[in-house]
Nucleic acid binder design. Sequence first.
DNA 1: CCGTATCCGCCTCGATACTG
DNA 2: CAGTATCGAGGCGGATACGG
Lengths: 125, 125
Amino acid sequence: MKKINALESDFDFKNCPVRKVLDRFGDKWSLLVLLILGKKETLRFNEINKAIGSDISQKMLTVTLRTLEADGFLIRTIYPEVPPRVEYTITNLGKSLVPLIDNLEQWAKSNMSAIEKSRDNFVKV
Amino acid sequence: MKKINALESDFDFKNCPVRKVLDRFGDKWSLLVLLILGKKETLRFNEINKAIGSDISQKMLTVTLRTLEADGFLIRTIYPEVPPRVEYTITNLGKSLVPLIDNLEQWAKSNMSAIEKSRDNFVKV
DNA sequence: CCGTATCCGCCTCGATACTG
DNA sequence: CAGTATCGAGGCGGATACGG
């Protein structure tokens, strides 16, 4: 249905991979959880909770973990004990994302303060 | 105000750089605009609009461009002509992000279909 | 051509209460 | 301990109409 103007050489952003990544990881907690599991490999629910620092609600942590599990970024193992024990282990797929997050982190550390300064000045003008 | 338990070795996610990046670029259009400008260096408003493919509203493109300008990712040049001409040029700061986006793009191309398949199966169970 | 202004739906996220 | 269920606020983004 889309007319491609040869002179415009339209990019293909209909199934843009970058867009897909943002749609999955642009949420508030997924990448943080992956980073944490990337360092510890396997953690229990409450350990992840404490690692984040109790800024996250129980509900959101549950939702985030379920979504990551559904996508194949971690494995959820339930031990039928009392009290219950549930462990989350990062997969190879999950690990493959960690270096990219590290890159983002490095970039942010190098540039983010300059960006924030720029934005502050811009608002004032 | 925060109690650090030595045994927990809490991560520092209060000013987490990754979180800052997501807060700035987790929106719908910023990275796409940067990618486009990364390829063409300088473009007019309507050229960017057409490159995206008219999925974006005029309002959102304006907001996105202003935010990117405020952050120092691009320069906005207004030519006092009739009809008006406005050109957007990517800065070095903007260019520095492009390789990272490319990395994300490559990762997505390699893994996103498997992820979507995993998610579909998960929902069905 | 390049915007601004306004209104409004949706969807994420947080707070709270309850459970096996 | 590790969830589930429900409600509600807030903000992003789309539609539309208008302006220099």
